[in-house]
Design a protein around this nucleic acid. Structure first.
Lengths: 286, 286
DNA sequence: AGGCCATGTGACCAGGCTGTTACCGCAGGC
DNA sequence: GCCTGCGGTAACAGCCTGGTCACATGGCCT
């Protein structure tokens, strides 16, 4: 039983990448599986091959987007299994991919809840396109709350609000500013070149000399500092671009500590307004 | 051009009564059409035959569930037309039913947004089953008609009445206005982009520059203010769209006699009745 | 040390976005 | 056929945002 699931890591939706499709293939035709598997790899889909019918409960726990099934491996229970599957997992895209069949059989399969029926032999690319079509349709209709808030330091980025918050207080970002922070926060810890930032936020290539990114970084820093004065989030990398990471404001007076990222968002000490000489205390200047 | 449309009655919500599928067939193969038409009659579907490509706007106004299209009659614009169609009417089920084709063509069609691709000659029953599968997919996700009244602030939205009320007083919303407030209230607290609102209330993609959403928001605001003057419900998010949330009017300059509650912004799910005379509808300007 | 270039910062203005009103076509009811 | 009310478009006004400019600051290289 081969598996190629990636950890359910930080995968959000929006400006960057679509979450990959999670697909299960119920089939035992090794040649077919091999060719198909290769294409699925290329497409970046997470897929799993199952050589025999799997209990429905197991299917549920796989959290699939779609399944490709050859009725042949289901044995005499094929129709029943198909029906239960569609009934139990209404969100699942079901594509039957099986050998020769009659019109009546195909109609029956579709009526039971299958979304598509492909006759073998078939071209893997077409099969993939059909699965894609099924999933696309399903997602479009769903289009629901797939917005999981992302938190970095004190800042919480809520895609459903198009806004960033600190302790529930809005940072009052404009649309562009939000797109920028979203991009940066999604790549937390990575240094993003200016050109890449521009490309993904503005949508087209940056012309040499354009300072828009810098200006918006400044606006963002300003607004973030207003709501979260004891942390620095956007760090400049000279000649390259910017990196997003929550780092407490610390002057060089704390030599024992860790210079970089404090993963545990420890509540910083009370913001002590600095008089004139920033030496010992984290400055909470404004 | 044969037509068998029934009046656009209020057939939605109907407990039990399944609305018939509205289908358009773009084809000119008379034999095929005849056989298919007969089966569609039997199935009780509303269908219309179009022998040549129809402007997209016309398609929009037909309020279809699905369309069966033979690429052959679209001429050289076939791919473009298909793409635009899928783009403009994302909820429309699109089944290509055409003659011999290559894998590459089928993949292209599916990638452009088609939901299924059937090769002629085909059995009409299978075609119908496939259209059904496509439409089923769409409706399943959409079929979330909960008639449970939703309350936000002073406003109660009753799906079974297609109306919103405040202290039992109707806001006198029109159908569109109701659909808008229902959508907004269902997503209470979330910021909904204009495009998404248009998509879900009007049923097709918004063209750039369309101000319908704005105008209807204004009409809604006006009617809501008439029946619930001390609350603001629809909040604009510049460059994005709107958010529905009950927030008390923060009056500060006119302390005549109504000390409005603290400016505490959020009053999320607390249907706190406001202290003033219900029943008496303030005379609004007309 | 000095110069050059990259970046930070504040101000500013045109264009775009939204609120608002008026108007028109159409469909349904009488 | 007339009338009313609804949906949708156009037009205008005002405000906000985005992006540029000019200048200040600071790092890197010779």
């Amino acid at each position: 039983m081969t598996t190629s699931y990636a950890p359910e890591g930080q995968r959000r939706t929006g400006a960057g990448g679509q979450a990959p499709i999670r697909l299960a293939v119920l089939d035992s035709d090794t040649g077919f599986l091999q060719v198909l598997g290769k294409r699925l790899e290329n497409a970046g889909w997470q897929h799993r091959v199952l050589a025999s019918p799997v209990p429905l409960d197991a299917m549920v726990s796989m959290r699939l987007n779609a399944v490709v099934v050859d009725l042949a491996i289901l044995g005499p229970q094929a129709w029943t299994y198909l029906e239960k599957l569609c009934e139990r997992l209404p969100h699942l895209g079901v594509v039957v991919c099986t050998g020769q069949s009659s019109v009546a059989q195909r109609v029956r399969g579709l009526r039971l809840g299958a979304d598509d029926w492909v006759t073998k032999p078939c071209h893997p690319e077409e099969l993939i396109a059909r699965v894609e079509a099924v999933v696309r349709r399903r997602k479009r209709a769903e289009a629901r709350v797939d917005d999981t808030p992302v938190s970095v330091g004190e800042v919480e980025i809520r895609a459903d609000q198009f806004q960033a918050f600190v302790h529930g207080v809005s940072a009052d970002l404009t649309r562009r500013e939000f797109e920028l922070i979203q991009l940066l926060a999604d790549a937390e810890g990575q240094v993003l070149p200016r050109e890449a930032i521009y490309q993904r936020v503005w949508g087209y290539a940056m012309v040499h000399g354009d300072r828009s990114v810098d200006v918006f970084v400044r606006k963002l820093r300003q607004k973030l500092e207003r709501v979260s004065p004891d942390w620095r989030y956007i760090h400049t990398h000279f000649g390259i671009g910017y990196r997003f990471a929550a780092e407490p404001v610390a002057e060089e007076a704390v030599p024992a500590g860790e210079p970089v990222a404090a993963p545990a968002p420890v509540a910083p000490p009370a913001p002590e307004p600095v008089a004139d000489e920033p030496l010992a205390v984290p400055a909470g200047r404004s």
